[in-house]
Design a protein around this nucleic acid. Sequence first.
DNA 1: CAACGATGTGTACCCTCGTACACATGCAAT
DNA 2: ATTGCATGTGTACGAGGGTACACATCGTTG
Lengths: 184, 184
Amino acid sequence: MAPTRRYDPERRQRIIDAAIRVVGRSGIAGLSHRSVAAEANVPLGSTTYHFKTLDDLLVAALRQTNEGFAKVVRERGGALADPDCDLAAELARLTGQWLDGDRAGVELEYELYLAALRRPALRTVAAEWCEETAALLTHRTDPRTARALVALLDGICLQVLLTGGRYDEDYARETLARVITPSG
Amino acid sequence: MAPTRRYDPERRQRIIDAAIRVVGRSGIAGLSHRSVAAEANVPLGSTTYHFKTLDDLLVAALRQTNEGFAKVVRERGGALADPDCDLAAELARLTGQWLDGDRAGVELEYELYLAALRRPALRTVAAEWCEETAALLTHRTDPRTARALVALLDGICLQVLLTGGRYDEDYARETLARVITPSG
DNA sequence: CAACGATGTGTACCCTCGTACACATGCAAT
DNA sequence: ATTGCATGTGTACGAGGGTACACATCGTTG
């Protein structure tokens, strides 16, 4: 009776949530079927049943965390849709809020995203993220410029995260503005 | 006698080289004192003696691989010094050669670089790489623009590597040119 | 209601890992 | 020559990991 807690329809989702917490705390290196099982409070066999490999679990986790930046944009980036606002300034501001708001969450999101470098299984999800983020900007710019803006923001954020430096909003705004400037 | 091969002054360097080969083949996840020892053909105790932790080994490896892009610039980027050459076009061309030339080497270099996200010990080295790469450009632009160019190149390369997409040299050239364009 | 398949549980096997430590060796300083 | 220290070697231990598998449970289908 008691020892078996049956029928848990949200088991799979709880395991994904637990995996995200584990990666946030210990990094991908600390992710194992056992560590996830402990965090999710389920037996070992349950995690291996729902996710045959850790890559499967990482794919599910990345899909879920990809929402991070988009969420900030949705909640506090309403001005982006306004054709009169300064796009570069608004993007620089939102990025600053994202980086300063939940640094641990940002690192987690990037760690999963960057893991695609060595895990082909994650590439599809990483590509989706790029496209979705660029899509947030296509109401204001052409697709080519949108892609460039995403690349530049990625590069700027990475340098902050990798070198431990500070985010310089003025510098970001000015550089973004150069990319936005219509070339002809 | 035979079993003990004494006095190997290059032992430390050979271990670093072996570590780089291991990471290139199996990723950082496949790096262990044992795998390095096997690759370098030295006993286990020797690797733990020279590098107390794997982080120490990674720092040494990153310092050595950081040379990758700089090497391409030195060997085939002579035109960068010429004030008459098209800086954006030349950068885009060199980056293309780097990406297409030795993709495995590029992935290796980036994997070590990106590892700084979760390993504070690597941040100093990552920061040095950014500065040195930017320094390659300061003969042609101001430091601020140089930093922006490095960030943009980083972002463009990352998107290619993470999404499995193709490198578009024309797109890179045009975007780089926008950043170079003097703002006033 | 009987059989079946999807889901959940518990355990055991074998592997690899980091670490520690005792011992061997050879250079350098005295 | 003796001492001391850096370097090199070999082994053992305990922790933790992926995987496999036998069994339990419950909804569904006929």
